[in-house]
Structure formats: structure tokens, C-alpha cells
């Protein structure tokens, strides 16, 4: 999240500042990719690139604050993923045993960055094992940083349904992790 500077960054990007655009991109692209890796794992990078193409095209018309901005990005990402028509290609995720996170670092330091990335990778795959709506809601809330109302708008569901899906997903995760005896 960019925070207070967002408006000036957006204005600068709209004015053609590559620095500002780089800043916007760097802030949001990892989150977009992680979300896409849950809903369109095989084409996440390509869809993300298409999202930015569309963002660039629509930048001049975009109005709103950072929350609106994030919602806009994820809305485009979701539409593009659906357009690709490849969500069916969503592969069944590898079983938990295979994806064991191993010994988790307690205090992340430079030497453990690789492990940290593995953990993120593993977490994304774990979320992808949830029913689609639950997985999507959790990704949009946690990784996308969207408010429940924004998630509801984006998914075309009621805020209540979104909230219930999130709770179910998290409870299910808790159960799966407890059953697997995973200690992170």
C-alpha cells in the first residue's frame, strides 16, 4: 500500500512519470500475481501483464483513492482471468504432505529469504485448495487489501456472503493445518 502519497504518485503517473508508474507497479504487481496464481495459476504472469496494459489505457480516466485503485486493479485482473477462459485449467493442488513448508524460520534474516519465498509459494498453493469462492475472498481481503464491501462488489455477492465465505475458508484452513499437524 502506498498511503498518503498515493494521490501525488497517481497524478505524476498520469502525467507520464515513469518513476511514478514504476512505483505503482511495484506496489501492486506482487499482490496481483499472488491473486492470479490462485485463480489462474497457469497464466498468472500473462494475465498480470494484460492487466497493466489495460491499466495504462485507462489511467487517464481513472478517478478515486487508493482503495478504489486497488479495487479497480483486481477487478480488471479477475475479468482478464475469466476472459482467458482458462480458469477451468485450474489444476488440483498438490497434497499438503508434498508441500510441507519444512522448518520455518522464526526470525527472518537475509539467509532465509529463499525459505520465505517458499513459504509464500506454499501458502498460495494451500489457499488454492480451498473452494474457489473462499480462496478468492481470502486472497482479495488479505493480499489485495480490499475491504469486505469492495470484495463483495467485485465478486457480485452480498457482503454477508463474502464474510461467510472468508470465515469458512479460514476455519477450513485451521482444520486442515491442525489435522496435518503443521507447525509453521
Amino acid at each position: 500500500m502506498i498511503g498518503d502519497e498515493f494521490e501525488s504518485v497517481l497524478t505524476a503517473a498520469r502525467g507520464g512519470s515513469e518513476t511514478a508508474f514504476a512505483y505503482l507497479w511495484r506496489d501492486a504487481n506482487p499482490a496481483l500475481l499472488r491473486y492470479l496464481r490462485v485463480i489462474a495459476p497457469d497464466v498468472a504472469e500473462d494475465v498480470a501483464a494484460e492487466v497493466w496494459l489495460q491499466v495504462v489505457r485507462g489511467l487517464a480516466e481513472f478517478r478515486g483513492n487508493e482503495a478504489n485503485w486497488r479495487a479497480w486493479l483486481f477487478t480488471i485482473a479477475r475479468r482478464r482471468a475469466i476472459d482467458e477462459g482458462r480458469r477451468q485449467s485450474r489444476r488440483p493442488s498438490a497434497p499438503l504432505e508434498v508441500l510441507s513448508p519444512g522448518e520455518a524460520p522464526t526470525a527472518p534474516d537475509a539467509a532465509e529469504i529463499a525459505m520465505e519465498n517458499l513459504r509464500t509459494e506454499w501458502a498460495i498453493k494451500l489457499i488454492a485448495t480451498l473452494p474457489q469462492l473462499q480462496a478468492e475472498v481470502i486472497m482479495l481481503r488479505v493480499v489485495g487489501g480490499l475491504e469486505p464491501q469492495a470484495v463483495a462488489d467485485l465478486l457480485g455477492r452480498s457482503p454477508g456472503a463474502v464474510r461467510v465465505a472468508a470465515h469458512r475458508g479460514l476455519r477450513r484452513l485451521a482444520a486442515v493445518l491442525a489435522k496435518a499437524g503443521v507447525t509453521l
Binding site: W25, A104, E116, L173, L177
Partner: peptide, 28 residues
């Protein structure tokens, strides 16, 4: 454990997630 998974989802980006910038910059 769930909180740990969510924290891993929010973890700082790795290099690969910042690798597509040239494509985006070209579009820009």
C-alpha cells in the same frame, strides 16, 4: 498456523514478482 499462512501470503515480494516490469513499462 492460519495466521502464519496469511502472513506468508502478505510477505515481501520476491524477485520473480518484480520481474515483469519491462513489459509494463513498455506498455506505459
Amino acid at each position: 498456523p492460519v495466521a502464519e499462512v496469511l502472513a506468508a501470503l502478505r510477505a515481501a515480494p520476491d524477485g520473480a514478482e518484480l520481474a515483469g516490469f519491462n513489459r509494463a513499462l513498455a506498455a506505459f
